[in-house]
Design a binder for these strands. Structure first.
Lengths: 208, 208
DNA sequence: GTCTATATCGGGATAGAC
DNA sequence: GTCTATCCCGATATAGAC
């Protein structure tokens, strides 16, 4: 840990790492203190309790993730460009932060109320996001489709392979090197898959 | 808890429920004992330790899930029929067991070796599964596509919306009733989405 | 602000009576 | 096989010196 940082930041950096990997109940205050290179009791001096520290980390992480997920879709581009950039960006981002999506999902599974406090003071505007996608589906591709389903499809195609990595890798006995290739391939495959699917609606119109 | 069951089964049923929801570190032996309606020390009498009990539950659950995932794809049907049935079946199954996929993913994230012991003595045959899908893609749709990507796509479109339910529901402020509708819709939307995507490859052939 | 020492408690595990 | 009582450690949290 860098000594130039102040103690509070060192604690937060360490707490992030440990909580992201092990969750609330799996994390140990001692481990966080060791990783931060400080004394255990300082954790309480700065953040009062384990729970308080966890909520701090969760809020931070969720905001970061939510912003990353929306900013691309709110920019000025065609929908297909957005999808291409999002998928690409996301696989890159995730490879350096492989635990954080699952961390957020688990934290919310454990206690859904956590999101309430965060969502309000956030520049996450879900309605605008969906409305933007709906408009682009209509104007650029002539499709009247529920944008939520499309958005969830995109997320599923990107996020699932990342959080299920150990599952996929063990079941199909894929070595690390081939797994890296697999993710690299998905940067092209996923946008193509989505584009094909959406184009399919244009010819065959039997949709919700 | 039903008193007609023997103690071992009562414990296993309770352990399943608690571990599925809270994971290894989040679960309490006392909670399992209470739910089973028996004394805490009996847990150790029957299963020696918390870890041993957890591994037992994990093995059981993983096998069940793996079998459910493969049996449909190894049956005798067209690929598109399989996909339709799989998606339908899966959303139904999951609604009654909403925690188990995430339980498995978390357990493997936490300790990937867990799978080794299980996978061997299993009638899960991943190579055969992929080979079957590859053959059907080729013969029924004329596609030379890596079947792993397609399989992962299917799983992602089905599993992600289920495990990310609290995330999706809170972000987009979706009430429970509308969420039930959302899953109901996906039974049709997902197979259509996949079919469209695959058909897209037939005309535009620029694939890995 | 940072440390050492300690309080306190919860939870996994075991001993032993019945 | 099932229970009560208890051990014992690990982990959160606090007191208090520096």
């Amino acid at each position: 840990m860098d000594n130039s940082q102040n103690t509070e930041d060192k604690i937060l950096a360490a707490a992030r790492e440990v909580f992201h990997k092990k969750g609330l109940s799996g994390a140990r205050m001692q481990e966080i203190a060791d990783l931060a290179g400080i004394n255990k009791s300082l954790l309480h001096y700065y953040f009062r309790s384990k729970d308080a520290l966890f909520e701090k980390v969760f809020t931070e992480t969720f905001s970061q993730l939510a912003n990353k997920m929306t900013e691309i879709f709110l920019s000025e581009m065609t929908l297909m460009s957005k999808i291409g950039i999002f998928v690409n960006f996301y696989f890159n981002f995730i490879s350096g932060h492989s635990y954080i999506v699952q961390f957020v999902i688990n934290a919310l599974q454990d206690k859904p109320e956590r999101i309430r406090e965060v969502i309000l003071k956030q520049n996450v505007t879900p309605e605008i996001l969906l409305e933007t996608i709906r408009k682009q589906l209509k104007e650029e591709m002539g499709l009247d489709i529920d944008p939520l389903h499309i958005y969830v499809n995109i997320l599923g195609l990107v996020i699932f392979p990342v959080i299920a990595r150990p599952l996929i890798q063990s079941i199909f006995a894929i070595p690390d090197e081939r797994m890296a290739v697999f993710y690299e391939q998905r940067k092209k495959i996923v946008p193509t898959f989505i584009e094909n699917a959406l184009k399919g609606y244009e010819t065959d119109r039997t949709m919700v």
